[in-house]
Write a protein that binds this DNA or RNA. Structure first.
Lengths: 114, 114
DNA sequence: CTAAAACCTCACGTTGACGTGAGAGGCAAG
DNA sequence: CTTGCCTCTCACGTCAACGTGAGGTTTTAG
């Protein structure tokens, strides 16, 4: 499919897709005239990228992560990176839940004293 | 206390404290010579700010949140904002946990196929 | 065949939370 | 008094993930 369809189907902008390519995350084939051609699987890929971005990973992190996935084997350094990222996300979840509780407290107070 | 001590005790940079002041979050007294004077309670405040920033709130959000807290009463718009932010954080936690599971899967795969 | 819609490549602009000097003044110790 | 560290106010720089035209080509619909 072409870039516009992928954009609407995966819920990101055309610009974002070109940016992902720049970062080496999703490099499509090209038609004879130079237009990008994406496979079906690209939709799922892009959603995965969004999820990882939302989790606070950088483009570089995601690229490393993909290289683990693509090559089909990982060295110690890559596995270390994966674990480090996972731990970072875990910490972040804990932080967010703390923040959530503080907000809940404030909401409770402002509801009883409006 | 002066700005340097607050910085080290609360774990942020001096620049960050001046930035918070710019944003109206933490406006200290001034000595005769113009140096900032913070009370003890500022340490806890700054940690709270960091927690909210980590949760994805902007300076403006935190300022509104403080005004709820300070004035001691809230209008409907403020309570709406508080709830919206809380819901946003909840969604984000759910997203992060999804991402966490995907990372765990990848880690499991790369461990069994190194 | 033509006009609109979609695509292409530069390349500069945006946003938020600071970083990083520059140049000048303040403060405790010896 | 002067050395050395802390603080002050501008004010420009940074970084990541895009946004936003500019100017030109390609594809599609009628």
């Amino acid at each position: 499919m072409r870039i516009g369809e992928l954009a609407t189907r995966s819920g990101v902008s055309v610009r974002a897709l070109r940016y992902y390519e720049e970062q080496g995350l999703l490099v499509p084939e090209r038609s004879a005239s130079g237009q990008r051609q994406y496979p079906e699987a690209a939709v799922e890929m892009v959603r995965f990228f969004q999820q990882m971005y939302a989790a606070g990973l950088t483009s570089k992190n995601i690229a490393e992560l993909l290289s683990c996935y693509d090559v089909g084997h990982t060295d110690a350094q890559q596995r270390g990176m994966l674990r480090a990222e996972r731990d970072r996300i875990r910490d972040r979840v804990a932080q967010l839940q703390d923040a959530l509780h503080r907000l809940d407290e404030i909401i409770a107070v402002t509801d009883t004293h409006p």
